[in-house]
Design a protein around this nucleic acid. Sequence first.
RNA 1: GCUCGCGUAGCUCAGUUGGAUAGAGUGUUCGCCUCCGAAGCGAAAGGGCGCAGGUUCAAGUCCCGCCGCGAGUACCA
Length: 668
Amino acid sequence: MNLSKLQENLRETVIAAAKSEFSIELETIASEVPPKTELGDVAFPVAFELARRIKQQTGEKSNPRMIAERLKAALKENEAVERVEVAGAGYLNVFFHRAKFLIESQTAEILPRLSESKDQSAPKVCVEHTSVNPNKAAHIGHVRNSVIGDTFVRILKATGKRVEVQNYIDNTGVQVADVVVGFLYIENKTLEDIKNLDANLTAEGKTFDYYCWDLYAKVGQIYQKDEALKAKRAEVLHLVEAGKNPTAELADYVATRNVECILATMERFGIRYDLLPRESEILHLHFWKKAFEEMQTREVIKFETEGKAAGCWVMPFEEHSGNDEHEADKILVRSNGTVTYTGKDIAYQMWKLGLLGLDFYYNLFHTYADGKEVWITTATDLASANVPEFGNSETVYNVIDSRQSYPQEVVKKGVATIFPEKGEAASVHLSYEMVALSPGAAEELGFQISDEDKQKSFIEMSGRKGLGVKADDLLNRLEENALAEVEKRHADLSGDEKRKTAHIIAVGALRYFLLKFTRNTVIVFDFKEALSFEGETGVFCQYSAVRANSIFRKLGEQDSGFRIQDSRLEEISAIFNAEDGDDIWSMVILAARLEETIAYAANANEPALLAKYTFNLAKTFNVFYSRHKIIAEENKAKRAVLIAVADLARSSLTAALNTLGIEVPERM
RNA sequence: GCUCGCGUAGCUCAGUUGGAUAGAGUGUUCGCCUCCGAAGCGAAAGGGCGCAGGUUCAAGUCCCGCCGCGAGUACCA
């Protein structure tokens, strides 16, 4: 039996005991992890609640400790429980039978399976993340989005869900149009010129997205003094949206190439997708029209004839009661008849939830090295073979920057208004704060910082200004640093092995760095901190797993024959009851909490919870490792116990790291 | 103005539907590799959780009011 189940059983026992002893029906009760191992493995502060209820019902005051005493007996009946104590003001502290628990951990699967559910009846959810405008290279802020999204996907899969990963491609927006303006009117390039440029860049080992990064910033600068060029933007945007013209073809090339570059960048971080839905198809397949009709039929949208939104179709929201009369009403169709981004987003969200009644066509976009496929939407039926089923998700998670919480609120409320039967809970905005630069970091990147900005604690990154830490640059720097360390420590490894190890370390460092902050914390990027391999880092966690593995490598070379199952229960219990028994046990129980931690992180929509747990697990293992000489232990039973514990710890640590998208190298 | 988020050790951050002596990392000082990997371990110093009230057996966590910082509040995306 795994720990989650055991705790669930104990909670039920307490509820039943409360009923039989005090005739009080509790629906749910809290259980918590005691602050110290000596205080037990699970604690119920239930006596306080019961005391309150008894007072309510009878008016009599009762002592929580006395109440707790009367609940003890029921818990003791569980054979996994060794003893129960009443402590403090009335805590009910439960101690598990340590020896039994450890032996069982050897045979039963107490850690969660990490593979995605293949069961087609398992609930399917959709996670949209990354969604970088395909007009430039990805920067560290985009990586935060992708790493949070990807980790959340892994967490959901570990809880048994089927997950579809979408990366929305806004290939017809102003940002792509801006770069197209740059190519057409600053550089005077044709599509052929751009293709040649692209080929030359590739030959020089450079990438198209980096070129666009600079061009985009240049366009932004020129816009400020050249009105004529700015006027071109609207013209280009219109052509791009309309499609089927040379400008649109050029834009498609630019966007598609950037998508390829961004996918390659994300692949370095271990981040992959199932589907790339594009805005062009949402336009050309008239998703909006269908959504609009639905809204009219259901009368959740109205045409304004007066006021500042005259001539627009708006969706009214009464919740926000601002000073302005209709401040909260959201315009979905402009007075010139075009649809706003939020309008398109509502249609897209409806499709994700299987509520639109229309579908895309699909084409294979890319196949990863191991055969996994990424699909892209198309406007016409290309009769592609073996198209998987997309959309139609029970719940949709959108990983989007918190600055967009207002439009996301509109999308959520909008869909719920149109389909009250589906409700708001089906749309989750997984918001996160931005990654900003410290003034020092911005200067290190070679940017002139205004005096005003120097006073600020952080500076927002800006693609338009070309101000940001590019994802590939940072990862390259991390790989270089890691490689230098690997060279120092393992000169005997081959060049390939060294580079592979350095890569795993670099990815571990960066993913952990982005995950250790909770979502609503602004990360003020600092090179020193991000490049660190010491302290609370992914590298620390990897290192501890590598050391654990090296114990077993050594053991493999020896005859390790003696296993814990061969010892008698009393022998093992004696070890846990000895002076250092508590600290051996604390390693066991912490390693066993992986499953509940994953469930907790999934419920709270917070990957950082798993990151923190993983660090604690690694820290605890390091302490365990330094206190106990495992291989050299002379007492056979104790040695077997230490080995079993180390084995459990490394399995749990490895599984936790994998769920964070962090690999464990062979050596490091 | 309104809405949302945040204010916890020198610095950067955790803190599970309110719970047992407020925790990490980093920085500072000191100690630990003839013994499973020192990207490690141990120790010391360091805050009473922005301010002021309230609810509760119990408040960093909930409520009210202030103060400070940030974001949003487009017929941009």
